[in-house]
């Protein structure tokens, strides 16, 4: 379907869109993982501090 829509430009247009989606997905995963990791650690430290 996309091939018939884009014709000979498909090899330029499709990689541009795929790359865009990959960059956004990659950034979301990376930052999301970092947020989960550090929030868990910070909350653990808070809990230890409260116990002390």
């Amino acid at each position: 379907m996309t091939d018939s829509l884009l014709g000979k430009y498909a090899i330029f247009v499709i990689p541009a869109y795929v790359l865009t989606i990959m960059v956004f997905a990659g950034l979301t995963l990376l930052i999301g993982r970092r947020l989960r990791h550090w929030s868990k650690l910070a909350k653990k430290r808070e809990a230890v501090k409260d116990l002390q």
Partner: peptide, 19 residues
């Protein structure tokens, strides 16, 4: 959205590493 999430992660990191 990404900026807010990244800033929250960085503040948590600073809090976790501070002690």
């Amino acid at each position: 959205a990404l900026l807010l999430a990244a800033m929250r992660a960085d503040i948590y990191r600073r809090r976790a590493l501070a002690p």
